[in-house]
Design a protein around this nucleic acid. Sequence first.
DNA 1: CAGTGGTCTAGACCACTCC
DNA 2: GAGTGGTCTAGACCACTGC
Lengths: 238, 238
Amino acid sequence: MRLPRYEQLCEAFRQRIVAGEWRTGMAVPSEAELAREYKVALGTVRQAIGRAVDAGLLERAHGKGTFVRSGLQHAHMFRFFRFREQSGVEDATVPRAVIHELREVPLCSDVGERLGVSKSSRGIFIRRVRILNDVPHLLEKIWLPYTPFEKLLAIDPSEFGDLLYPWYREQCDVVITRASEEISFGVLEQCDAQLLGLSSGAPVAIIRRTAYSLTGTPVEYRITQGDALRFHYNVDIK
Amino acid sequence: MRLPRYEQLCEAFRQRIVAGEWRTGMAVPSEAELAREYKVALGTVRQAIGRAVDAGLLERAHGKGTFVRSGLQHAHMFRFFRFREQSGVEDATVPRAVIHELREVPLCSDVGERLGVSKSSRGIFIRRVRILNDVPHLLEKIWLPYTPFEKLLAIDPSEFGDLLYPWYREQCDVVITRASEEISFGVLEQCDAQLLGLSSGAPVAIIRRTAYSLTGTPVEYRITQGDALRFHYNVDIK
DNA sequence: CAGTGGTCTAGACCACTCC
DNA sequence: GAGTGGTCTAGACCACTGC
């Protein structure tokens, strides 16, 4: 009993989600019911749920219930840039995506390390551009471990959805819950320049993202590049 | 009684800090004592303190007590850049600062708006460079409202500390608790280039920060520029 | 050892959502 | 009105800090 009871409960909740007993978007049992089930006080269940909410696993809705989060929120790469015309109104349109490359590749040591797989194992590589108003704005290079994503290789790239994370869930049963992003700056390489309609050597913001599944395993590494002059990001500190 | 009791308590704590009754770095009364004082249950006090901790006002230390936070943490602009040699060891040295300009100015509408002061009122302008290993790396332009910072104008710039926020507290009794930062990229203007030892037109990362006092009033606006190629920032999302 | 915050209990009542 | 999460109470005991 090293860990507090509420931490153990939170971990139990995670396992029920991973095992598929609690499904994405569905309501979990009420706090009172969970308290009975685990034979703990209501306050302890609430604390455990609070942890799970902080961890991005669950979300509460006053009067309705507690629900399994459907995955990473606010993860759109476009949040780092200002491409949309200043219309004032919120434009919730999902940018289009066009895949230019989808193939099996050996994972180089850098990528393999980030994905936590053994050296020189197989992987899947995707290259695509994100398009807004028919203008390509972001270039993405994406690496996935061969398992559990091998199924994607058999699908025609034009069939892929504009959003990959729901696609991973539908096709490969992988839910992305967390990601770590590194922002830096660089210049565009020639081979990438034409896809973005920028000149070779143009300044770009570079976002390197490692995304993690429910179990905490890294399952995607992605490098996104976009016009540095359109880059814009806010941080609040305290 | 619209707000929950713990929110009211949290606000009461803030006011005791603002009023100077609870001083920076000092321990506040124990949870049990506060519960007696406000005639509420211990759990309610704990929840209120939890809010205050989230708001950056207090910090807890198990077995020791609860303390008034001494101000903004992890706010160093150098956290956005990688200038230090990769020594592996953590280098906690505070970079030197050299002030090149300190004077009274009229606040232009852009800055005035961010500081929440009426149009064309007086302000204080500081321009300084941050230096590591005798090399200037960051250029900062800082605007302050005339009150309560007027005292700074009478001090010799060489007397200023390397860190401004402790300096604001010592000299003007202003504690910075929160800040909002906007990151973007641009190119260096000629007049700034020489101070940084970069060429005019060199790519720079630009951080625009608005800093807030205990009362939530914006009290400083700052633009920091540094070599874009050394820029590096991490974000975790869930 | 005394004093602090951290965990946990068992219950009451309130506020919100949906039927 | 029934069922949910949100607030609040009044206690017990544990874990950590410092003398």
